[in-house]
């Protein structure tokens, strides 16, 4: 049975820690994520183009 009570689900969801929030905005870490995410997306395109 699905639970349509979104308020409850949202209230029980985990919150990111301060460290996670910092990581999400840290220029060095995000620069690295930018490179790896692009690579991942590019590989995905290649995988789909067979």
């Amino acid at each position: 049975m699905i639970d349509l009570n979104a308020d409850r689900a949202i209230a029980n969801a985990p919150l990111p820690t301060t460290a996670t929030l910092r990581r999400r905005n840290n220029l060095l870490i995000q620069g690295w994520r930018f490179v790896t995410l692009n690579l991942r997306m590019y590989l995905m395109v290649l995988k789909g183009n067979h």
């Binding site: 999400r24 870490i29 997306m41």
Partner: peptide, 9 residues
Amino acid sequence: EIGLAGHWI
């Protein structure tokens, strides 16, 4: 994943 890198992409 969530972050600034996603915005740049």
